[in-house]
Design a protein around this nucleic acid. Structure first.
Length: 752
RNA sequence: UGGGGUAUCGCCAAGCGGUAAGGCAUCAGCUUUUGGUGCUGACAUUCGGGGGUUCGAAUCCCUCUACCCCAUCCA
């Protein structure tokens, strides 16, 4: 189980604890109209993850209510993705289309209840009648049809008697609802087409808003988790289930922010554009953020899942850095994968003083990976090294081979450069070198020669030529707009790279670390023993390469932008009069007076409380803060408590019966139960403790228990005072007089 | 513009009135026969801005600002 608890798991835990559900049931409900991408992986990880963590189960449901867009090939892709990620839906593979008759029956019920009607407006009229975000819509005249008419029409719609668009079934809710989604939402539309599963049985198909909540209910889903853009649909979700009077337990919808990653695109539309415009090789192009793409690239399911876990679940729209994903795959592969040698851009090295041939035994795994296995590395007079591992005029800090600097051939000998051979253009084509016979890798090294690094190499006669595909980010912009932002260098193919023979002969794995380069994967489609093809999964971290590349101009820390306040709405005459009275007569501070004067409910409440106990300032404070909170969603008449009770509460603070801290608790209890404040205080024993003789020992105790913090405090960390006060208050159940505690703590801490 | 959301480090993200978690990135140092890994340390006197309430505010109240979603017979 993930250690950290996100807001969804918090909800789930509460629901389990309160007994709202006996078992947690979630579902992953994609529409089979495209290939799943890493955003789906997040959803899969959430839904299946929660089910697993709380011993419930998660259904896989294809939301196939729109026959014009969906196809069975996408169903397969979705199934594969979930399976690949390691989740099992068992028997629970469902299709919304399986519920068509049940959903239809619910529609009939709604019609009979007078809550749904057949509308015969045109599409344009419906749009027009819906109104705008600021103006209310108006209801169609067809909304007045009788139940019998509606039933008849709906039946005939179902039987295919009408053409597409002639009629729709709508819920009768409210054409002037502030939530546009609630303006008589469409429930069914006519589609005289073949459905990839249901065939031609239906001429009408339910809309998302009607089908989804009912499917969830039918499946016994407890937590229906979707993305943020469905927030407005939640009202319909609840309306349908409530109106149909479906018995609990029933599902509730929760929303989280969908995943965005920089330098790529995630929308189905844009992905489709890339595939269909042949900007990539297909849905499984290794540069794509599709599950199929990551799979082909060589990402492990574990790394994707870890990533999903790391980024967390929240409601803020965000853009995750690809670096986070790259970290996950590197971290995973680092622990798993054999290290081998590959030369991308070969430079010939002839070791003049070496004769013959040998096979060097080299372990597949470095000292810090606890895995066994090794292979034979052929070594001979002629080898190839990576071209950039030699520099005739090395920059400062260069560790590799130079005319004056020896280097170790990984797992083999140390060599030094004797001569540089160039062609007529001055390009280096060969290095003549010498090796130190005593320097053989491992305990055999008695040469005493010190080198700064070890480089990879392959023996010229034994190396295998392979194709390497190097991938870079698909887009050059962090937030790409469209194909114009494509990175022209996102794919680099190296046809004649050289690898050591064991990789192809022994095939110790399908993923490798090519030492000092990166992690690579045998392409599952194009790889053959004759023409091996490797995809770069991700490069190794390269602090040297980064250092040598353009020293990026660090964007200067921008001066904090000054935020200009917008204009505040002016007060009405009455409000102004009230404001004047409050500030002048009652001596309230202007901020408090302002809130009070502008809110009729609050000022009424305030004035009434004032009649009970005349302390305007303190009552005003509690009214503008605590009461205001309660009144945010409610009317005065819905309150469980009355102004007089608040007045009494203030009175108790004033005569120091209780502290302001306790007063908050009392207020909360009172607002929930309507109990008298005095009674709450009495029955729970909340009287304030102000006696230093009682408080002092508690402070002593806490000081003894927290020597570290005492030290920090004495070293100057003054905000720790709050920590100690908090501890004392915790110890006394909040009853200690905080003013006294503050004084005492400060005194005790400065002593000694 | 009405309604619904969201703002905590360069990027994610905990936190729910009492010491601003963690990860990525970055920067140092140590280790290293991968300029990899590992280890150690540094990295938010401050939580979108401004006020208020409180002994004490990222957390409660007021207010302003920015961004996202909603006017498909898509999901």
């Amino acid at each position: 189980m993930s250690k950290k608890k996100d807001f969804l798991r918090t909800v789930v835990e509460n629901d389990l604890q309160s007994g709202k559900y006996k078992e947690i049931v979630t579902r992953f409900p994609p529409e089979p109209n495209g290939f799943p991408h890493i955003g789906h992986a997040k959803s899969i990880s959430i839904n299946f993850g929660i089910a697993r963590d709380y011993h419930g189960h998660c259904n896989l449901r294809m939301d196939d209510t729109n026959p014009t867009k969906e196809d069975t090939k996408y169903v397969a892709a979705l199934e594969n993705a979930v399976k690949w990620l390691g989740f099992d839906w068992g028997e629970d593979l469902y299709f919304t289309s399986d519920y068509f008759s049940q959903i239809h029956a619910y529609a009939i019920k709604l019609i009979k209840m007078g809550k749904a009607y057949v509308d015969s407006l045109t599409e344009e009229q419906i749009r027009e009648y819906r109104g705008t975000v600021t103006e209310a819509g108006k209801r169609s005249k067809y909304a007045n049809r009788t139940v019998e008419e509606n039933l008849d029409l709906f039946e005939r719609m179902k039987n295919g008697e009408f053409s597409d668009g002639e009629h729709v079934l709508r819920a009768k809710i409210d054409m002037s609802a502030a939530n546009m989604k609630m303006r008589d939402p469409l429930l069914y539309r006519i589609r005289n087409v073949n459905h990839f599963r249901a065939g031609n049985e239906w001429a009408i198909y339910p809309m998302y808003d009607f089908a989804h909540c009912l499917s969830d209910y039918i499946e016994g889903v407890s937590h229906s988790i979707c993305t943020l853009e469905f927030e407005n649909n939640r009202d319909i979700y609840n309306w349908v289930l409530d109106t149909l009077e479906l018995q609990p337990p029933r599902p509730y919808q929760y929303e989280f922010a969908r995943l965005n990653i920089n330098y790529t695109v995630m929308s189905k539309r844009k992905l489709l554009e890339l595939v269909e415009g042949n900007y990539v090789s297909g849905w499984d192009d290794p540069r794509l953020p599709t599950i199929a793409g990551y799979k082909r690239r060589g990402y492990t399911p574990e790394s994707i899942l870890t990533f999903c876990d790391q980024i967390g679940i929240a409601k803020a729209n965000s853009m995750v850095d690809v670096a986070q994903l790259e970290f996950c795959i590197r971290d995973d592969l680092n622990k798993k994968v054999p290290r081998v040698m590959c030369v991308l851009d070969p430079l010939k090295v002839t070791i003049e003083n070496y004769e013959g041939f040998e096979e060097i035994d080299a372990p597949y795994y470095p000292h810090d990976v606890p895995k066994d296995g090794s292979r034979k590395l052929p070594f001979s007079k002629e080898i190839f090294i990576q071209r950039d591992d030699f520099e005739e005029n090395p920059p400062k800090g260069y560790f590799r081979l130079t005319p004056n600097q020896a280097v170790r051939l990984r797992h083999a000998y140390i060599i030094s450069c004797k001569e540089i051979i160039k062609d007529e253009n001055g390009k280096i084509i060969e290095i003549k070198a010498e090796y130190y016979p005593d320097s053989k890798s491992g305990s055999a090294d008695t040469s005493g020669v010190k080198v700064k690094s070890a480089i990879q190499w392959v023996s010229a006669t034994d190396a295998k030529e392979v194709e390497i595909r190097l991938y870079d980010r698909l887009f050059k912009n962090e937030i790409p707009e469209g194909i114009e932002d494509l990175n022209p260098d996102s794919l680099k193919i190296i046809k004649n790279a050289l690898v050591e023979p064991a990789i192809v002969k022994e095939k110790p794995d399908e993923r490798f670390q090519f030492e000092r380069i990166g992690y690579f994967y045998t392409d599952p489609i194009d790889y053959s023993d004759d023409t091996p093809v490797f995809n770069q999964i991700v490069g190794l971290k390269d602090s040297w390469g980064k250092k040598t590349k353009e020293k990026k101009v660090q964007p200067k820390a921008q001066a904090k932008q000054v935020q200009i306040d917008g204009e505040v709405v002016a007060m009405s005459k009455e409000e102004e009069a009230l404001f004047d009275k409050y500030t002048k007569e009652l001596q309230l501070n202007s901020e408090v007076a302002n809130t009070l004067a502008r809110d009729k409910k609050l000022s009424d409440f305030f004035e009434e409380a004032l009649m009970e106990y005349n302390n305007p300032v303190n009552i005003a404070n509690i009214v503008t803060n605590e009461v205001a909170r309660e009144l945010k969603q409610k009317e005065l008449t819905d309150l469980k408590f009355i102004p007089q009770q608040v007045a009494q509460l203030v009175k108790m603070i004033d005569d120091e019966t209780i502290s302001t801290k306790i007063a908050k608790d009392v207020f909360e209890t009172m607002s929930k139960s309507g109990e008298e404040p005095k009674q709450i205080v009495d029955s729970r024993g909340l009287l304030q403790i102000s006696d230093p003789d009682i408080i002092a020992p508690i402070i002593e105790d806490i000081i003894v228990k927290n020597p570290d913090n005492v030290e920090k405090f004495r070293a100057g960390n003054k905000k720790l005072l709050g920590f100690f006060v908090g501890q004392v208050l915790k110890e006394t159940g909040g009853k200690a007089n905080p003013k006294v505690v503050n004084e005492l703590v400060a005194k005790k801490l400065s002593e000694k």
